[in-house]
Design a protein around this nucleic acid. Structure first.
Lengths: 179, 179
DNA sequence: AGTGGCATGTAAAGAGTTACATGATTTG
DNA sequence: CAAATCATGTAACTCTTTACATGCCACT
């Protein structure tokens, strides 16, 4: 898959100015079930995008010799984002080591499978809780309409987490009662 | 994520001897919702694994100067696979351009979102059908027990596809009735 | 005779992670 | 005052895809 780093950045900056660090954080906390980016992708890309005229950087001078950059999207940036929105989507890339193990297991691996299922269940419950918290943070806002699209994705994320939690806890029971 | 190519191969060869081409096909058809490998990973890895004593190659001489290799797992290969089964799982890596677009969209992208949702829905219905066919291919076999683990993953895959289909068709209706 | 699927492989390009380096600010 | 978090960046490495090259086999 071609790299999409710039579109994620552009998409987030449409709503509010952010630093590279905040962008990374936002992706990790809110989008982790379908996307990830590392600092090694984000920081060089921010500079390239500024060079291409897609972003403006507001330099927040902190005390000392360190600087902090808060980026704003330009008109050209909005254009590039909207062009990407119109393009066809490439095929997903997914790699889940847990699913791989669940699929390839046989009876000689039962104990390992149970262990991985328990870990899987716990991780998905945590993720579910964090999505539900994020969802609640929208409750009560009057401009719900502006967040319609995020809310819909969040709804899907929550339903997926429920599915994973239900499936794994049933599966654990089955394996444990089978002895 | 460290590359897992050898474990996928080992896992598949535990059940039956296969060619590199068949391995690739099997991953594409049955495991695509949580894993993918390319020929560029599989063929060099098969040679490395043979070198490491994890596989034996049976050379099917075809007429002409072309050969075809059917690989068998060795005892050492089974060991390496079982050791991997016991290890902790690394974090998933997922990238879905469609989800990214759904998440980052706003009203100015509504038409694009509907288009991508329709494509998304269609692709997921096709995938659902292929999983259901794969599932049916197990029905009637007496040794269902041997396929317990695959069946459980297939069940999850099918439920996930149902979720994606339901969610996207509801979403399309919502967006279309909102005008 | 042509198409599509079976079959193996490599080289180069591209994508992505990780470890490291640096230092400020906030919070307990 | 220590620890956590905010903050930016790069270089090296690893992983992965893609395009290309080759040729067989079955079917129409």
């Amino acid at each position: 898959m071609k790299k999409k780093t710039r579109y994620v950045i552009l998409g987030l900056l449409r709503d509010e100015a952010m630093t590279g660090y905040e962008i990374k954080n936002c992706i990790d906390r809110r989008m982790s079930f379908f996307w990830q980016e590392s600092y090694g992708q984000i920081y060089p890309e921010l500079n390239a995008m500024q060079n291409d005229g897609l972003l403006d950087a507001r330099e927040d001078q902190q005390s000392g010799n360190r600087v902090k950059f808060r980026y704003t999207i330009t008109e050209k940036g909005r254009q590039v984002f909207n062009d990407w929105m119109t393009e066809e989507c490439e095929k997903d890339t997914v790699r889940s080591e847990a699913f791989l193990k669940f699929f390839l297991a046989n009876d000689s691996n039962q104990a390992d499978v149970i262990h991985h299922l328990e870990k899987f269940h716990q991780q998905n419950r945590e993720r579910l809780e964090s999505y539900e918290m994020f969802m609640k943070s929208f409750q009560g806002l009057e401009d719900m309409h502006n967040h319609k699209y995020i809310l819909k994705m969040l709804e899907l994320g929550i339903r997926q987490q429920h599915l994973y939690c239900d499936w794994s806890s049933d599966y654990i029971d089955e394996l444990k009662n089978n002895d």
